[in-house]
Amino acid sequence: MAACDPKNTKYTYNYSPTSDAVTVHWFIGPNADGTKTITAGTFVTDGGRDWTVKVDADYSTGNVVAQSKLYYGFQATHMGISYTSPIGHFRAIDSKNTFAELTYATVSCSNWGFGMFNAYDTLSKIEELDFYVHAGDNIYEYKDLRYPDDHMKVRTQITDPPHEIASLDDYRRRYRLYRNDASMQALGAHAPLISIADDHEYTNNAWLTGAENH
């Protein structure tokens, strides 16, 4: 789960079900169990978008108190089995933007093989965090053991896919690998992400007609 791109009365978020479910139910509410909702709806997804879900949820009609904590989650049923997502939360901002101050973190250059994703875990424990900015290089495109090499790599799992990513399926598989990291998931559920693409999201040191390795 990831949460993100906050606006004063809206909240966009996305979530990847683990099956090829087609209809995903979502909610935003004042408590984590989803028994009371401020707004809710459904989103139909399929393999054409890698089963991701994006919702632009308007909670402005919910009489939400500024800075109050709101919860959101997803549920889908596929082949008779119900799947429920972890619950995420964020702090509401009202239409008058009455925040006296905002607390945010900046991260960048997240190379799965090098580890140090514990930084995400640390941020997920900071209660007052309003959002975090990822300034680029959310993923790295290299094949396994290229960067980091076998001396520097801290993970025992083989990088997926094992080759340098170049096709749409490759990029999707690499995002899935990164998003399976528990620390990254914890931060995604804790605070909205404002994400920026740099070069490693597609290839290193790109210029007008090519790139370092191409």
Binding site: D5, Y13, A166, D170, H214
Partner: peptide, 23 residues
């Protein structure tokens, strides 16, 4: 390795699918 622009297209499509950016 694929055509460079095709590769960039695939990369950005995946980025917008997985990154929480308003479409």
């Amino acid at each position: 390795e694929g055509d460079y622009y095709e590769r960039m297209h695939f990369a950005m499509k995946a980025f917008f699918e997985y990154m929480p950016i308003r479409e």
